[in-house]
Simulated assay, not measured.
Amino acid sequence: MRLPSPLGISGPSLWLPPERQSGAEAVASGLVDAETAGELGYSALPVAALAPPEMAVEAGREALSAAGVDPAAVGLLLHAWIHYQGHDLWSPPHFVADRLGADGAVPLGVQQVCNGGAAAVELAASRLFVEPGLEHALVTTADAFPDPGFDRWSGDYGIGYGDGATALVLHHLPENGGGRPADLVLHAVTTVAAPRLERMHRGDDPFGPAARSLGPKVDIRRTKKAFLRDGGMEAFTEASGASLRTVVRRCLAEAGLSAADKPLRYVVAPRLGRKTVDLAYAPPLSELTGAELLRPGADTGHLGAGDAAASLAELHARRMLGPGEYALVVSAGAGFTWSCLLVSGA
Rank of each mutant, 00 (worst) to 15 (best):
H171S: 14
G86P: 10
D183S: 08
G178D: 08
A182C: 08
L100R: 02
Q111F: 07
R152P: 09
P132K: 05
G104Y: 02
G133A: 09
A67D: 10
P71R: 04
S43E: 14
G60M: 09
H83K: 11
V69G: 09
L134C: 12
A49V: 15
A125P: 01
A73R: 14
A118G: 13
A56V: 10
H83I: 09
P174V: 05
A51L: 15
Y157F: 15
V121G: 00
N115E: 02
P148W: 12
H87E: 13
A51F: 13
Y161E: 01
G116P: 03
P53W: 09
G68T: 11
S91I: 05
P53K: 08
V110E: 01
A182H: 00
A125G: 05
T140E: 05
Y157W: 11
A51H: 13
A72I: 03
G155Y: 11
D88T: 06
A66V: 09
A167D: 04
W153H: 08
C114I: 01
Y84V: 06
V69I: 14
P52C: 13
A73F: 02
C114K: 01
H83G: 04
L170I: 02
Y161A: 03
A125C: 07
G75R: 05
S126G: 15
T166W: 01
D70Q: 10
I159E: 04
G117V: 03
A73P: 01
H87R: 15
Y157Q: 04
I82R: 11
G104H: 10
H94F: 01
D156S: 13
R152T: 14
S43C: 02
G109A: 14
A67F: 07
P174R: 00
V185S: 09
P93Y: 02
E135L: 08
L123P: 00
Y42V: 13
H83F: 14
D183M: 02
T141H: 02
V106G: 01
P148S: 14
R99F: 06
A125L: 05
S43W: 07
A44T: 06
N115M: 02
A137Y: 04
L138G: 07
S91V: 06
P53N: 11
D103S: 10
A72G: 15
A67K: 09
E62D: 15
P146L: 10
D103L: 08
L173D: 06
W81H: 15
F150P: 05
A102T: 04
G155A: 11
S126V: 04
R99A: 14
G158Q: 05
P46H: 12
A137T: 06
G149H: 13
L168P: 00
D147L: 14
G60I: 07
A63L: 07
L186P: 00
M55H: 10
E62W: 05
V57N: 09
P92Q: 06
L173W: 07
A63I: 11
G60R: 10
A137H: 03
P53I: 11
G101C: 03
H136Q: 13
A73Q: 14
Q111I: 01
S91W: 00
P46A: 14
P52R: 05
